[in-house]
Write a protein that binds this DNA or RNA. Structure first.
Lengths: 220, 220
DNA sequence: GTCTATACACTGATAGAC
DNA sequence: GTCTATCAGTGTATAGAC
């Protein structure tokens, strides 16, 4: 066993470099789009020679695919909070909170996803048709169950989900517009709390939950 | 005086060609982004030689700027339906309808705008700071007026507007994802009617309007 | 006003020394 | 595993004949 602070086997070097490159690529792809991003710029951000990128990821498209896959997994795992809740107030409320947290912590990832979908998902179309479609159907079933129990209004679960996705991701994808309308400054902690409160308030009340159900979710 | 069915003065030729190029550019920029779009592809879609594009628009960026400006004006004029309404049920309800109509009729424009904002608005930052900011402030004042009159719940008008923008534009910007989750087919007339009904229902009820206020908006 | 041919710059990708 | 030098391909933009 080595006590060297930088043991750096070849395997560790590879993992570390792949992580650095992936992080730089997410940022650059988010800001410039696929076509606008250059391997040179990603290399500069990563602090590595351009040739090294090609050593770890054969092509620009392969690197991009890894970035999108990485983001997709963040969405999916984070969305698990949606389930295992007794009713819509907690289930949907926590889901909205989680999605807004991701928009704040991973704005670049959200933007890369939006870019990919807006360009007709040339790289991850298979994900849309399989993983996302299955996830969506299962959540629609949960919501329909809540509706059948009379826990919420009989809205179309699909459009409810779209509204949640759209609204929560808007704070990441259109973050620049929001910041500009905020006087040029990013939202602070209090403002993010306002976002969560207002979004949950409107949506939860909009699907028929009583005020006291919503108020019970307020952090204290 | 000429009775030629194609009189085509130089001025008319210019107007017609600029219109054709602008329309082709909007489509290509929406599908490929700024970096991914090529002047060659825009020329092919427009049915003109590539050099002619440079004759009418000096640079690729100048052409792109015209496309974004064009879209921005569609947003603004269409948003006028928001005002001149006695209360939130009609004012916000009609605004949601109008925004959704635009998402269906001008999806390419919405995507170009989204792309531009996601990349930090390199071309139309001045629009965000002036025209959009002023428009937003004036609408916030209207909503606050409704709140003061007790016509709706005291939600934050800014986040209400963001929710409306996000949700309505989602059906254009993420149209490919929605179509995929719809079995690969675009939404039909009945499904678009469902969208309008569900979005208005959740948001209007979410800001405290009574069921009969919302029901009164339903087309008959 | 139209269009072919081309200049010039840049990008993705690779070869090969270290 | 690292990195300099370089190739091949493509993109924007322009020159100049028609």
């Amino acid at each position: 066993m080595s006590s060297d602070p930088r043991p750096q086997t070849k395997r560790e070097i590879r993992q570390e470099n792949e992580r650095i490159i992936l992080q730089a690529a997410e940022k650059v792809f988010a800001e410039a789009g696929f076509g606008g991003a250059t391997m040179q710029l990603i290399a500069d951000v990563a602090g590595l020679p351009k040739a090294n990128l090609h050593y770890y990821y054969s092509t620009k498209e392969a690197l991009y695919r890894r970035v999108v896959e990485n983001i997709f997994n963040i969405w999916l795992t984070a969305a698990d909070t949606f389930e295992a809740s007794p009713g819509p107030a907690e289930g949907i409320g926590k889901y909205i909170d989680a999605k807004l947290e991701i928009s704040r912590s991973h704005p670049a990832g959200s933007k890369v996803w939006a870019n990919e979908v807006m360009h007709r998902a040339p790289v991850i179309q298979d994900y849309l048709e399989t993983a996302l479609a299955e996830w969506t159907d299962s959540r629609i079933a949960v919501i329909n169950g809540w509706i059948d129990k009379g826990l919420m209004d009989p809205v179309d679960p699909r459009h409810l989900l779209y509204m949640i996705w759209a609204t929560t991701q808007h704070y990441a994808d259109f973050g620049h517009q929001i910041d500009t309308l905020n006087g040029g400054a990013p939202l602070n902690d209090a403002q993010w709390a306002d976002v969560k409160h207002n979004v949950k308030r409107i949506i939860l009340k909009g699907i028929g939950l009583a005020d006291h159900d919503i108020e019970a979710l307020r952090p204290r």
